[in-house]
Amino acid sequence: MSNVTKEVEQECFVLEGCGALQEIVRPREKELGGFSVRRCLPSRERQMVGPWIFFDHMGPADFPAGQGIDVRPHPHIGIATVTYLFEGEILHRDSLGSLQQIRPGDINLMAAGRGIVHSERERPEVRDIDHRLHGLQLWLALPEANEEMAPEFHHYPSADIPALNVDGVPIRVIMGTAYGVTSPVKTFAETLYVEAHLRAGQKITLPEAQERAVYVAGGNLTARDSEIPEFSLAMFAKQPGVVLEATEESRIAIIGGEPLGKRCIVWNFVSSRAERIDQAVQQWKDGGFPRVPGDETEFIPFPDK
């Protein structure tokens, strides 16, 4: 998705934790073109968790026939976007010529590097009927050595993502290595991304990572005596043996990895250098980015506010 304003950091409610649980971020819900988005990263209190610099929970949104997602072409630099759907479908197009339907369980990985443009819309077959969209969209900051890499696009169908059962809990290792398995999804630094679906009373031990956090996409968890409520992102210290328990049916995402250092972020642009952001802004205003084949007549202008 594209940001609607130049500034990206969101105000969130932050609750201090204790022990391994450092803090809990509760994002404010924001309406964005007919559906709600909860943005956990970046916030004023926390920019990144490992290499993850952007975390949006979109929906669930129910659209009547004739309405739906319609994100016009917009640019990125310095990141890799990661799209994962629980329900619904998105049609991805980009300036490399990629045309890909994203369905539940798939992983869509687009590495912007020195610059890419993409759009997110829906096929007429989807848009013409009542439908629902629900999912997560994340950005990975690229290591400095990869910030100016040639852009890439990778799509991994759901069947390619490792799935296993740990103590009765179904788990998918979306990126990185956890619970003894490794995902085939490309990474650029040490990266962790895991999904789990717990029934009430079930427990899960967090995989280890230099930095890590748990997002509750649905349900409610506890970590020792601390509650982690629905739609919150809980940050954990690098401490082994951290156990979470679901107090009701819960769907969670675990993210983390190695810290990459602070990044500058303006609108859809991320870089370790502020002057590179300024260059990208001017390049977009001047029409210097490549166009998206099959989606060439519209674009999102840079927001001046």
Score class of each variant (00 low, 15 high):
Gly105Lys: 05
Gly105Ser: 07
Ile107Glu: 02
Ile107Trp: 04
Asn108Trp: 01
Asn108Cys: 11
Asn108Pro: 06
Leu109Thr: 15
Met110Pro: 02
Ala111Phe: 08
Ala111Val: 06
Ala112Val: 04
Ala112Pro: 02
Ala112Cys: 02
Arg114Glu: 14
Arg114Gly: 12
Arg114Ser: 10
Arg114Pro: 13
Gly115Met: 02
Gly115Phe: 01
Gly115Asn: 02
Ile116Cys: 00
Ile116His: 07
Ile116Leu: 09
Val117Arg: 10
Val117Asp: 12
His118Asn: 01
Ser119Met: 06
Ser119Leu: 08
Glu120His: 05
Glu120Trp: 05
Arg121Val: 15
Arg123Leu: 14
Arg123Thr: 14
Pro124Arg: 00
Pro124Ala: 02
Glu125Thr: 06
Val126Cys: 07
Val126Thr: 08
Arg127His: 01
Asp128Arg: 15
Asp130Glu: 14
His131Asn: 12
His131Lys: 14
Arg132Leu: 15
Leu133Glu: 14
Leu133Thr: 15
Gly135Leu: 09
Gln137Pro: 06
Gln137His: 13
Leu138Tyr: 07
Leu138Gly: 07
Trp139Arg: 03
Leu140Cys: 12
Leu140Lys: 07
Ala141Gly: 11
Ala141Thr: 09
Leu142His: 02
Asn146Ser: 15
Glu147Ile: 03
Glu147His: 07
Glu147Pro: 10
Glu147Lys: 15
Glu148Tyr: 12
Met149Gln: 13
Met149Ile: 07
Ala150Trp: 13
Ala150Asp: 07
Pro151Cys: 14
Glu152Lys: 07
Glu152Ala: 15
Phe153Cys: 01
His155Ala: 05
Pro157Gly: 06
Pro157Val: 09
Ala159Ser: 11
Ile161Tyr: 00
Ile161Glu: 05
Ile161Gln: 00
Asn165Asp: 11
Asn165Lys: 11
Asp167His: 13
Gly168Tyr: 11
Gly168Ser: 01
Val169Cys: 04
Pro170His: 11
Pro170Glu: 13
Ile171Asn: 01
Ile174Lys: 08
Ile174Met: 04
Ile174Tyr: 00
Ile174Cys: 04
Gly176Arg: 05
Thr177Ser: 15
Ala178Gln: 13
